[in-house]
Computed example of a mutant assay.
Amino acid sequence: MKNSALIILVSCVLLGSCMKPSTNSNKKLDQISLITISRTPCFGTCPIYTLQIDKHCVATLEAVDHLPNGLKGRYETNLPEKEWMKLIKKLEQMNYSSLEDTYGNRQISDLPSVISSISYEDGDMKKIDDYGARGNQELSELYAYIDALIGTLDWESTDGNQ
Rank of each mutant, 00 (worst) to 15 (best):
T23R: 07
S11V: 13
Q137G: 04
T23F: 09
D110W: 14
G132P: 05
V10L: 15
V58A: 10
V13T: 12
L14N: 00
D122K: 06
M125N: 04
G70D: 01
L153C: 05
G44Y: 04
A144S: 01
T36W: 04
K72V: 00
M1F: 03
N161D: 03
L139F: 08
V10C: 13
T77P: 12
I115L: 13
H66P: 00
S109C: 10
L153D: 00
Y75L: 08
N24A: 13
Q162S: 14
A5H: 01
E83H: 00
S25I: 12
S22G: 07
L61S: 11
D122G: 07
D54Y: 04
G151S: 10
I37R: 01
D129T: 13
W155D: 05
A5T: 05
S117T: 08
I88H: 02
N136E: 06
A148R: 07
L9C: 15
T40Y: 07
V114F: 03
S109Y: 11
N3H: 09
H66I: 04
P41R: 02
H56R: 15
H56Q: 15
N69S: 10
D147A: 04
S117H: 01
N161S: 04
L153T: 03
Y120A: 07
D122W: 10
L9Y: 13
S116H: 07
E100M: 06
L9R: 12
E62L: 13
V13E: 11
D122A: 10
S109A: 09
S157D: 15
R134P: 05
L153S: 05
S116K: 10
N24P: 07
Y143S: 10
S17F: 15
R106E: 02
N3G: 08
I118V: 14
E138C: 00
K72W: 00
S113E: 11
T152K: 14
H66S: 07
D124Y: 11
P112E: 11
N3Y: 13
D110Q: 14
S25Q: 13
S109M: 15
T50E: 10
F43H: 09
H66C: 05
S11K: 03
I8H: 08
N95S: 14
M125F: 01
S117N: 12
I115V: 14
P80K: 00
D30N: 13
N95V: 08
D30V: 14
E138Y: 04
L87H: 02
C46T: 14
G44Q: 13
A133C: 01
H66V: 03
E100Y: 07
T45P: 02
L34W: 11
T60E: 09
A144I: 03
D130K: 00
N24E: 12
L6D: 08
Y131R: 00
L67P: 00
E81I: 01
L153R: 02
T158W: 04
D54E: 08
I53F: 11
M94P: 08
Q107V: 02
E81L: 02
M1W: 13
L67V: 11
N136M: 05
N105R: 00
K55I: 05
